[in-house]
């Protein structure tokens, strides 16, 4: 059947701008990274001198302390912060959908941190967590406790960064989950309430299962953004103390830009792309498994 709205040329016209962007500004830079990763690039007489080094850049990656620490911390960071955010956001959304008065006000306030640039979040919390003059330190002082140097101690620094991320990004999950909850059909709840279900039973057996697709989508989306974390770390800790909060974005930034090792930085980037591909394939495989299972 010839569908006028799905006219062939129209199909191309509508898709090609996005394709153009994703190819020119997406594929080309990645290919450039792949090319650079086989070279050491030095500048002589104001011109780039590409010296081929084969796989040497890749061979050096396992020995790079910032790479292994960055990868480990990024995974810990992303998993922990997204998990905490999802749980918090789910309850906040649930509660917010249940109250009658002040709902708009709660919603406005709870979304607020999302609108603050990450760099500002870093600045705010760097001040706020300062053991000497920060608000938290002062409050601990008021109740007679020693202030804790959250960002300065290797044991607590990553935790502190995770908590800051939770403050910053829970609103995002909250927003999506709230939209999901408000979109749930009402009649199921009415039936449940007639059957005399308790609130927690309602949540466990009705809300949670029906929300599962939204929860999954939100979690995946958040995980993707958490994996790229950069701005907050840039101001909060700069990856330290030691390598306690080194994340992979920051490793790339340091190797590629600060130290100007374009070849090695590219090799790290390509390795990260490869790992991301593996994660995606794994995630898709899991999803396929889940879908095969009869409902």
């Amino acid at each position: 059947m010839a569908l006028a709205y799905a006219d062939r040329s129209f199909r191309w016209v509508t898709l090609s701008p996005a394709a153009l962007f994703l190819v020119v500004l997406g594929v080309l830079p990645v290919l450039n990274l792949v090319a650079m990763s086989f070279f050491t690039i030095v500048w002589k007489n104001a011109a780039a001198d590409w010296q081929p080094v084969g796989l040497a850049n890749y061979a050096a990656i396992p020995g790079d302390p910032l790479f292994s620490a960055g990868l480990r911390n990024t995974v810990v960071f992303a998993v922990a912060s997204v998990a905490i955010q999802m749980v918090l956001a789910f309850f906040l959304a649930l509660w917010c959908s249940q109250v009658r008065t002040g709902r708009t006000l709660y919603r406005t306030v709870l979304i607020l941190p999302l609108l603050v640039p990450g760099i500002v979040v870093g600045a705010i919390w760097k001040l706020f967590l300062n053991p000497e003059f920060g608000f938290l330190g002062q409050m601990l002082g008021v109740v007679g406790l020693d202030p804790i140097d959250w960002l300065g101690e290797a044991q607590t620094a990553l935790l502190a960064v995770i908590m800051v991320d939770v403050w910053h990004w829970t609103p995002f999950c909250f927003l999506l989950l709230l939209a999901g909850i408000e979109g749930l059909p009402r009649d199921v709840y009415e039936a449940a309430s007639i059957d005399g279900a308790r609130p927690w039973q309602e949540m466990l057996w009705i809300t949670l299962p029906m929300m599962l697709p939204t929860i999954l989508v939100t979690a995946v989306f958040r995980f993707v953004v958490a994996f790229k974390v950069f701005d907050e770390v840039y101001l909060l800790t700069g990856g330290g103390p030691g390598t306690a909060t080194q994340v992979i974005s920051f490793t790339i930034y340091q190797r590629f830009f600060t130290e100007d090792r374009a070849g090695f930085g590219s090799a790290i980037s390509v390795s990260v792309i490869f790992l991301v591909c593996l994660m995606l394939v794994a995630a898709l495989a899991v999803r396929a498994r889940l879908q095969e299972r009869p409902a």
Binding site: P65, L66, A154, G240, P241, G242, T243
Partner: peptide, 10 residues
Amino acid sequence: LGINRVVAGE
């Protein structure tokens, strides 16, 4: 990195 690790006690 090296000196920072010494200072941090790593």
